[in-house]
Computed example of a mutant assay.
Amino acid sequence: MNRAEREAAVRHLMEQRPPQVPPDLYADVVRRGSRLTNRRTAARRVMWLLLLAAAVAFTAWALSARPWVEPPSQTTPPVITW
Rank of each mutant, 00 (worst) to 15 (best):
W82K: 07
G33Q: 10
L25R: 07
R3K: 15
E7Q: 10
T59R: 11
T59H: 10
L52Y: 06
D24S: 08
Q16D: 04
Y26N: 00
L49G: 14
P23R: 11
A54E: 05
T37R: 15
Q16W: 01
R40P: 03
R35M: 06
L63S: 11
W48G: 05
T75S: 13
T41W: 05
A55T: 08
R17E: 15
A60P: 00
L49E: 08
R40Y: 13
E15A: 14
A9D: 07
R31I: 02
P78F: 05
G33I: 04
A53W: 08
T59K: 12
S73N: 07
E15C: 03
P78D: 11
A4N: 05
T76Y: 12
V30C: 08
G33T: 07
L51D: 03
P22M: 01
E5Q: 12
R44I: 10
A9K: 12
Q20M: 07
V56D: 03
S34D: 09
V69W: 08
P22Q: 04
P72H: 01
G33M: 11
A54I: 02
R6C: 06
V10Q: 07
N2Q: 02
A54D: 05
R11T: 02
V56F: 06
D28S: 07
R35N: 14
M14I: 02
W48H: 14
L63I: 11
H12Y: 06
M1Y: 09
L25W: 08
L63W: 06
L25M: 10
P77N: 12
E70K: 10
L52C: 10
T75L: 07
A42C: 09
R31A: 13
T41A: 15
P72N: 02
A43Q: 12
P67T: 00
S64Y: 14
R39K: 15
L52V: 13
L52S: 11
L63R: 05
M1Q: 12
Q16E: 13
P22H: 04
A65T: 10
L13C: 04
S34Y: 05
D24H: 11
V46C: 07
R3H: 11
T59Q: 10
T75K: 06
R17T: 15
R39N: 15
P67Q: 02
D28G: 05
A8W: 00
P19H: 04
A42E: 14
N38E: 14
N38G: 15
E5D: 13
L36W: 09
E7H: 07
A4E: 08
A9V: 00
W82N: 09
R6T: 05
A9E: 10
R3P: 03
V56E: 04
W82I: 03
V46S: 08
A55N: 05
Q20N: 00
I80S: 01
R40H: 15
A60H: 05
R32L: 12
R40S: 15
V56A: 14
L49V: 04
L36C: 13
R44M: 12
A60M: 10
R31C: 04
T41Y: 06
A9C: 03
A53D: 01
R45Q: 15
L49Q: 03
P22A: 09
R66W: 02
A55E: 04
D28R: 14
Q16I: 01
V46R: 14
M1R: 06
T81Q: 06
R45G: 02
A42L: 14
P23D: 11
V10L: 15
A54Q: 07
L36V: 09
E70H: 01
L50G: 12
